[in-house]
Design a protein around this nucleic acid. Structure first.
Lengths: 301, 301
DNA sequence: TGATGCCTATCCAGTTTTTCGATATCTTTC
DNA sequence: GAAAGATATCGAAAAACTGGATAGGCATCA
């Protein structure tokens, strides 16, 4: 049994046919059939059931499949590891929550890109759940998500601790005065922003439900909107301290459980971190130390 | 790059020479040299430094090495997985603390061996640290060790909870009367028994140090020895209840932190559990439910 | 019912890859 | 300087792989 055999096996299983696999593998069908046959002979049990419309995995094939996938991944990872000379370079796919990207990451990204020009950095955004899945599926090398994350295959550490503040127009003295009927809206940075859900929970806990939502692309727009009495929002406290001192908005007390959000950087435990990734984490921590505080996260081994 | 290449690479790296690798791989040196050369060409960087006394890994080779090892392990595991038809069979290497084996495992082992005659069950004993290392090195499929065990690569669950009792001769009313000078010894089942260390800690905490040790091979011998006034010991409470009621020994109070010992069954997280292993764990739990209580252990994913 | 399309199995020949054995070369050691 | 032990190189033989052509099974459709 060899990696090449498993590669063929995996393609046949995934595409459900030897013909189709032959196409993907840039070879001919007879060849695929032959190799599969050899593999089955070697293992001593059939891996596929042949029907007229293609093939399906037998029980033994099902058992082999995850290994075929894993070996393929390992080999390509090995190649990258050999190429990785220690100076960060190559591709680096990072995921982030939209809000984290906007509020925390931009300066770090800019200086990272400048410091390591040989890295092809791509940033993808999504919800925490989407990002976790993408990291697990090895589509992303790592991601910034809302903590805590508990998954055996993932390592993570808290890189930012946000202290959120509930921000309302200055005229709103008591939260109780908020009702759906007076037209005040929830103002958030972007749809699916994870602060939105938290804000709705906080309001719901105080009996305030049914507020409409409003989205803006920039922080200034959000704050301006709140100052104008149109909505309420939930933002990191240090971003709204200045407007508050200027009397433009009012901040309402939250319990620390409600206000505290950990942003965790996660990556697969089993994937060896590339130089580019290692440098990225180090760089982000260094940059963030100016604004946020660094904390301990999951056990990292 | 193929698994066969990595196999050759790994042998050369491990043995430090192409000649020696050729011997192990049942081929000739020229062949090994050739394949290594091809691999280096393919990867674009030399993997070995050639000296007159053999070869040593370059930085790139060092980076490749763990992948070579892992791929080899995966392939052999894949083969086993394919062979594993669901009915427990094949080899199963289990480790255990000597004391756990003697006190808890024997009945479970006997009935397991009877229930699944196609499994080649081998039991090895050692200290917790030794067993953990053996499981990590894949020399054992699993092991019973003293909890708690915190290791990212290991999953575990508590299968037994022992409530230990400090057992002394009935004449010894107060622990304070124990001194090294009156000849009383620590009696344990076997050298290196993990209860021994615990017992010494418990005594030390009460200012009793310097007692000599005495080993016995059977429980009855130990209890008889204590009853005869020769020594003190630490044993699961339910094993000494009968002699205590008979007035043969005295049990002294311990805090629950001192008396409680978790026996945890550990196995590698990344190794897919064979049917034999799965059945073993299930069987042990079932059997142990008669005597001990089952509890939750580490997060198992 | 026969034609068609899609699929796998098989066989053969050509090519590529791998293996082996012999030999060259270099370095350390005695 | 010889011997031992190491890697490098080369050519021939063996093995494995590939590609193309063909056969046959099974469903669908007219």
């Amino acid at each position: 049994m060899d990696a090449a055999d498993l590669r063929i096996f995996e393609a046949v299983a995934r595409l459900g046919g030897m013909n189709r696999a032959a196409g993907e593998l840039h070879t001919v069908q007879s060849n695929v059939t032959h190799r599969i046959r050899l593999l089955e002979d070697e293992l001593g049990s059939p891996l596929f059931r042949r029907n007229s419309r293609g093939v399906t995995l037998t029980a033994a094939g099902e058992r082999l499949m995850p290994y075929a996938v894993r070996v393929g991944q390992l080999l390509s990872e090995a190649r990258r590891a050999v190429d990785d000379t220690g100076t960060p370079q190559g591709k680096l796919a990072i995921g982030s929550l939209e809000s984290t990207l906007a509020l925390r990451l931009s300066p770090a990204l800019a200086s990272y890109a400048k410091a390591f020009p040989d890295v092809d950095l791509t940033i993808e955004t999504g919800t925490s759940a989407e990002l976790v899945d993408a990291v697990l599926a090895r589509k992303l090398d790592g991601a910034f998500v809302c903590g805590p994350v508990e998954h055996a295959a993932l390592a993570g550490e808290t890189v930012f601790q946000e202290d959120l503040a509930l921000v309302t127009p200055p005229a709103l003295r008591r939260l109780g005065d908020l009702t759906a009927s007076n037209g005040v809206k929830i103002v958030v940075l972007r749809a699916g922003c994870s602060y939105r859900q938290r804000l709705e929970e906080i309001l719901a806990r105080r009996g305030i439900v049914g507020l409409r939502r409003l989205e803006f692309g920039t922080l200034d727009a959000i704050i301006g909107c709140v100052a104008a009495g149109i909505g309420v929002t939930l933002l990191p406290r240090n971003l709204v301290e200045a407007p508050r001192r200027a009397g433009k908005v009012r901040i309402h007390a939250l319990s620390s459980a409600e206000s505290r959000v950990d942003t965790v950087f996660i990556h697969r435990r089993d994937a060896m971190a590339s130089s580019a990734l290692t440098a990225f984490v180090a760089h982000t921590e260094q940059t963030s130390r100016a604004g946020g505080r660094r904390g301990r996260g999951l056990k990292t081994s």
